[in-house]
């Protein structure tokens, strides 16, 4: 199973690109897609999901060009868009049956599968209520359920944890870890903690281009030995910002504890173990 994105661009007008000459190859496992708002993550995912067509380039799934033959991937796709809606007059069960019909799946086991998905996503008690009465988190879980209705071989989750409470986030992470064995899972987020716990590989995007694609360890290695923490006065912060990449700040006894990246740490700085967030911020700020 291999998804190849080759020199794909999405041009909105003469000089505006959502994605520019983007290439990446994705194999089985979980790929975490990170990037700031406007990086082109959703544009890329919509093109893979065949909702949007690239202006240039090809997307191949197992050597089949899905730009020309979108139904090839649609039969094996589970897609949770970032911003999706529901028909408020249908209940969750009916809505999922409807999506199943759209995906072209059915059979005697469909109702059982829907029931088990709803149960696993804590929606079974509300399954017969109109979705219009659901909270944002409940709708998001209906979205997750619809992505898993068929036996998807390519699963795309665009900002899946929006609206989920911490407990549901953990359950979601466990759920998609289970998917990684025989599927391509692409998980987009701008929240690093959503990605670092589960992604086999991480791709970081900015301004419609790919900055890096590697394992978490390889990405973190790029900032290893460069992450420091230091206590400074509040008044010194703006000057400090201009000369260092700041990861985070924390108030501590009237002063500020600053975590930053630098090749030349200032005096009294303490070397810290680097993590994915450090590497991500360093890459997006320096590229």
């Amino acid at each position: 199973m291999q998804l190849e994105i080759q020199n794909v661009s999405k041009r909105y007008n003469k000089n505006t690109y959502g994605l520019k000459d983007f290439s990446i190859t994705i194999e089985k496992g979980i790929l975490g897609l990170l990037g700031p708002n406007g990086a082109g993550k959703s544009t890329l995912l919509k093109m893979i999901a065949t909702v949007s067509k690239p202006t240039d380039g090809v997307i191949l799934l197992n050597k089949n060009n899905i730009v020309k033959d979108p139904n090839y991937i649609r039969k094996q796709l589970g897609f949770l868009p970032q911003d999706f809606g529901v028909y408020p007059n249908l209940n969750a069960f009916e809505f999922l049956e409807y999506i199943a019909a759209m995906k072209g799946v059915g059979g005697s086991n469909l109702k059982t599968r829907i029931a088990q998905l709803l149960e696993g996503l804590n929606l079974i008690a509300a399954a017969k209520k109109p979705i219009g009465s659901y909270s944002g988190g409940m709708k998001q879980r209906v979205g997750i359920a619809q992505a898993l209705l068929n036996h998807p071989k390519v699963i795309i989750f665009d900002e899946p944890t929006v609206g989920l409470d911490p407990e549901e986030r953990v359950r979601f992470r466990n759920l998609i870890s289970d998917l990684a064995n025989d599927c391509i899972v692409i998980l987009s987020s701008h929240i690093v903690s959503d990605i670092d716990a589960i992604a086999d590989e991480v791709a970081i995007m900015k301004n419609g281009s790919l900055i890096v694609k590697a394992t978490q360890e390889d990405i973190i290695e790029k900032v290893e030995g460069k992450v420091f923490e230091v206590i400074i006065e509040k008044e010194e912060l703006s000057q400090f910002k201009s000369s260092h990449v700041i990861i985070s700040t924390k108030r501590e006894k009237g002063k500020l504890q600053v975590r930053y990246i630098s090749d030349h740490p200032i005096e009294n700085s303490e070397l810290k173990e680097a993590n994915l967030e450090d590497a991500y911020l360093n890459l997006t700020k320096n590229n």
Partner: peptide, 21 residues
């Protein structure tokens, strides 16, 4: 609309298979 939470996790491989239709 509120409901009690269950602790059932989804094991996708254990879900019943659906056919093409």
């Amino acid at each position: 609309i509120s409901f009690s939470k269950t602790n059932n996790e989804i094991v996708l491989s254990a879900l019943p298979t659906v056919n093409s239709n």
